[in-house]
Design a protein around this nucleic acid. Structure first.
Length: 572
DNA sequence: GCCGTTTTCGGCCCGACTGTTTTCAGTCG
């Protein structure tokens, strides 16, 4: 699968072209192609061989040629030339909030600054202020942006880590020496951001496994190598740690490398009181040094008289105590989900028709799916005005008669305007099955103001759900300054449901807040907020957040069958 | 760069906000 590589290169090209100041629409074509390819369900190499790349949305003659070049050579000339032209650091600077391509170029031209470190120094010694268009405030904003970025340095999104881990696992499974391979570490715990990808392999011949692994074409550097383990860096800057263990030790090892340190330490303490020592090789009886090799992870916990603790919980947040007292949550799972209540169609900024969405939702085994396009103020997204919304409702009514096996719910993602009002009157909102309210503007308003806006939305009797309640974008934007305690309290009081948004760079509410919300008696909904069919599958990211937040089926309203869901939505 | 098309080139994503200006440019959603 080279989809990821092609997508990555196109996105990189777009960034570099932006810094060069090239045509906006040209840049957008690369961005769009990058996104489309990242979300392709098929292997792009297969498409190239069997049909036509030109049939893919957003790919024309020029990009088709470049895709072929990348598949055949791993790169393309256009990309290599841009890389010679544009220092790497300038591209990285695009990630700094408040700093765009134009100012990066201004700074580069004036001060010849090519790395984020140099930029930080220049900002600290006040060399940026005074440059055209940059004053004291911008300089401070840049400095703040750099610090935020550094706090997340070296981490990748869970979605990226999973994609790469799958690719590597698929490759390893082909090696005859490999018996089993699983990811461990924070990736297996499904944390939102991942440092290293950690893989555990069981094999009789570690040398063969390492040999085979080091042939992986994406490896650019071998950081460490031993007889049974290695650490490498991939072309995308990601570190992968691979450890090979004897087959009989596999489950002990997988367990050992999955829990975080605190979880493991606490388990070891408990084991010691029972005369046992748990480590990556197995479980040792201290009195006679007998070794037990667990045949699965359940056995590890069973030896300590505990029920199985799922990987998502193994972070010493009370799960061990809960296990001992037999009050672990029964975690919500993918199969519990009966529908998606936040989906965009091609009526606003989505790319699929309502009919396509409904059919795909039905294929996924859903009972219902809500169409929640943007409202009129969000011009970028071609938000719906009252008249178009009414027409959409009519269409959905008609489709519900034609399509069986799935109920399409009418809905809207209505903007919470900067003046605390909603983008639509109650007269309109009351016509809809699902009303989601969310903030898309005025992110920089102060705490009191933003909190008041969201509280006002929750107090509206027709608003069912607050989408992405904190507004953060992982690696790009911190949440807006909102008093989350007030939001949770008001949600509980007004029967407003809070969303766990499954978009891989949102995951908002996050696991901590989801847990807190549950404690305060707030109900939640796990939605994708997707703009295209493939994105419906991203619901799994939201499920993982929920599981990490100890949520059970009963805490999540879209596990309810349709009739009960409608009751909950009506109850407000 | 793609797309649609009255097939050969014009349209494609717009408006608020901020900070820098002294009438506007850059950034962002």
């Amino acid at each position: 699968m080279k989809n990821f590589l092609v997508s990555y290169i196109f996105s990189d090209i777009a960034d570099m072209m932006e810094i060069k100041g090239e045509n906006f629409f040209k840049i957008r074509a690369y961005r769009k192609a990058s996104q489309v390819i990242a979300n392709l369900p098929e292997d792009i190499e297969e498409i190239m061989k069997t049909s036509s790349l030109g049939s893919i949305e957003g790919i024309g003659k020029a990009l088709e040629g470049k895709i072929k070049e990348i598949i055949e050579t791993g790169t393309c000339r256009h990309y290599e030339e841009l890389k010679k032209d544009i220092p790497r650091g300038l591209v990285e600077m695009l990630k700094i909030p408040g700093l765009g391509a134009k100012r990066i170029k201004t700074i580069y031209d004036a001060l010849n600054i090519t790395t984020i470190d140099e930029l930080e120094q220049a900002a600290k010694s006040h060399k940026l202020r005074g440059l055209p268009g940059i004053g004291v405030k911008t300089e401070q904003a840049i400095l703040k942006g750099i610090q935020m970025l550094k706090g997340k340095a070296g981490k990748m999104l869970l979605s990226t880590a999973l994609y790469l881990a799958e690719e590597i696992k698929d490759m390893l499974k082909f090696l005859p020496a490999v018996e089993k391979v699983e990811e461990a570490g924070s990736l297996r715990r499904r944390k939102e951001l991942i440092g290293n990808i950690y893989l555990v392999v069981s094999s009789q011949s570690p040398a063969e496994v390492l040999e085979g692994f080091l042939d992986y074409p994406r490896i650019t550097e071998v950081v460490a190598r031993d007889t049974d383990k290695t650490s490498v860096v991939l072309d995308l800057g990601v570190q992968v740690d691979l450890r090979v263990v004897e087959p009989r030790s596999f489950w002990a090892a997988l367990h050992h490398y999955t829990g975080n340190e605190d979880h493991n330490v606490k388990l070891k303490e408990i084991a010691r009181t029972r005369g046992l020592d748990i480590n990556e090789n197995g479980v040792f009886k201290e009195k006679n040094n007998e070794v037990i090799y667990p045949g699965n992870e359940e056995e590890v916990y069973k030896l300590l008289d505990m029920p199985y603790i799922i990987p998502e919980l193994r972070e010493d947040k009370g799960e061990i105590e809960a296990a001992i007292e037999d009050r672990l949550p029964d975690p919500v799972k993918l199969a519990d989900i009966k529908g998606d209540l936040h989906v965009h169609s091609n009526w606003s900024d989505g790319i699929n028709s309502i009919e396509e969405i409904a059919i795909r939702a039905r294929e996924m085994g859903y009972e219902y799916v809500a169409i929640t396009d943007h409202s009129k103020s969000l011009k970028v997204a071609r938000g719906l005005d009252e008249e178009r919304l009414m027409r959409q409702i009519e269409l959905i009514k008609k489709l519900n008669e034609e399509i069986t096996g799935i109920r399409i719910l009418t809905g809207i993602e209505v903007d919470i305007l900067t003046n605390e009002l909603l983008d639509f009157d109650d007269e309109i909102l009351k016509e809809l099955d699902v009303v989601i309210a969310s903030v898309h503007s005025g992110f920089k308003q102060d705490r009191e103001k933003i909190t008041r806006r969201i509280v006002a939305a929750m107090e509206n009797p027709f608003v069912n759900i607050i989408a992405h309640p904190t507004g953060r974008i992982l690696g790009k934007r911190d949440s807006y300054d909102v008093d989350i305690d007030v939001i949770l309290k008001t949600a509980a009081e007004t029967n407003t449901i809070l969303e766990i948004n499954s978009t891989p760079d949102r995951l908002d509410l996050n696991d901590h807040l989801a847990m807190k919300a549950k404690e305060m008696g707030v109900k939640m909904v796990i939605n994708t907020d997707t703009h295209e069919l493939e994105g419906l599958k991203d619901i799994r990211y939201g499920i993982w957040v929920a599981r990490r937040g100890w949520l059970e089926k009963g805490d999540v309203i879209n596990t309810l069958p349709l009739s009960q869901l409608l009751e909950v939505l009506d109850k407000k």
